Amino acid sequence: MNLFEPAAGLRNAHLQTILPRIMRRKILFRPVTERLMTPDDDFLDLAWTADPARHPSGQPVLILFHGLEGSLHSPYAHSLLFAAKAQGWLGVIMHFRGCSGEINRQARSYHSGETSDAAFFIRHVRERFPGHPLLAVGVSLGGNMLVNYLAETGAQSELTAAQVISPPLDLAACSARIEQGFSRVYQRYLLGSMKRNMLKKIAALPDTLPFQPAQISGIRSLRQFDDTVTAPLHGFSNAADYYQRCSGLGKLAWVETPLRIIHAADDPFMTKAVIPTAPLPAHIDYHLTQYGGHVGFISGSWRAPAFWLDHTVPAWFQTRLNPCA
């Protein structure tokens, strides 16, 4: 696996973060959509890279968990799924509740430590593909969530191997960082999407949610959103309690599945607090690059950009699938 080297002229963290969203808009496969009903009478919307009923016996299945307010249409998501398809694998994204374009039915939603939907979906995939290696990628929020899942399941995890990309492993530090400097642009974008979706949900479930539209409209930061919405909806005392209980950094020692963590030191969503300082077990591969931004990692050149994640993620999984190759 080659090391990441940013494209000439693209060492700036914000260019690395923003340009992939501009360069990779088109989905390069025809997704096969499916709705999976949950035990609490809600739903998870899936998008597969091909008809799952025709997937060759024994070939891997790659599960992708997207980031905050992400979806199949997030460039990193469909690009990584297409990279899996190019390997002959079946790829699938599980949209978190409310992220597929339709408001979910229950008051609860998703957050960085909410693992029950992921666990339910992974068990579903394992039952559907009993003889296939299961691989998982979690991006940003989905990465921290995946670390929580791996820590909770330990040796009982259904996954063969996993990778997490730009995970906010210290939620409090990342919440503070995104309120500083140019990173406030990202906060404004994400918060705008979160508020719009919550206002739609209040309108759709007026007797279920304990919020007033004016409360949501007045929120000015991600931390305030977590204090006002995320924490009370999901059983936390406040944002600080949520951040402390759901940050993945302190749970890495409980992970038993082979895991790779990819961080960039210049990530504008992160601080050094997300970087593990305690020794990690041999089955956790920590990969810290100097450059790359947040889920960026553009190499190549301006004229011919290359998306390093699309190459390095399948390559690392291949080393776990074929350790003697």
Rank of each mutant, 00 (worst) to 15 (best):
E69N: 05
F129T: 02
A304I: 10
F307R: 04
D241F: 10
A83P: 06
L28H: 14
A155E: 14
T17V: 09
R128H: 13
Q318G: 08
P167M: 07
T38D: 09
P268A: 05
E114L: 14
P314D: 08
R24F: 07
T115C: 12
P213E: 13
L64H: 01
E179G: 11
L199M: 13
L15E: 05
T33K: 08
V32L: 06
A13E: 03
L134H: 09
L44H: 01
L190Y: 10
A107G: 12
R260S: 09
A53Q: 11
G143Q: 04
A253W: 00
M94N: 06
L46W: 01
I18N: 00
R196D: 15
Q187W: 02
G250H: 11
P279G: 05
R260K: 14
E256W: 02
R123Q: 14
T312Q: 05
D266G: 04
D310E: 15
L222P: 01
Q212H: 14
H263T: 00
V229T: 04
R220G: 15
I18C: 02
L150A: 04
L150S: 06
M23L: 15
M194T: 06
R184M: 12
D227L: 08
E179Y: 00
F82R: 10
F211A: 09
L205G: 00
A240P: 06
P39N: 02
D117L: 08
G9V: 13
S109R: 00
V137Q: 02
Y110G: 04
I262V: 14
R21Y: 13
V147N: 02
I219M: 11
Y149N: 01
D41T: 11
L15R: 09
V185H: 07
P133E: 13
S109W: 01
V295I: 15
E127L: 14
H73P: 03
Q215W: 12
P168T: 03
H311F: 10
I262A: 02
M1H: 09
P268L: 06
L222D: 02
E256Q: 15
L141C: 08
Q187T: 08
W302M: 15
P60M: 06
R11A: 09
I275W: 05
D241M: 11
H73Q: 15
Y242R: 01
A282H: 06
L249C: 05
Q16G: 00
R320H: 12
P60T: 10
L134E: 07
Y291L: 11
K85H: 14
Y149G: 01
L72Q: 05
P314L: 13
M1T: 06
G292I: 11
L141N: 00
L199V: 12
S116Y: 08
P305M: 10
I216R: 03
A161D: 02
R196K: 15
G138H: 01
F120I: 08
L15D: 07
R184K: 15
S221V: 13
D40C: 11
A86Q: 14
N197C: 11
Y110S: 07
P268M: 02
I63H: 00
A253I: 07
F82M: 15
T319R: 06
R123F: 07
P258Y: 00
H95W: 09
T289E: 10
A7Y: 03
H234D: 11
H124A: 10
D310S: 14
L134T: 08
S79A: 15
A84Y: 07
K201E: 13
I219R: 01
M194K: 04
A306W: 06
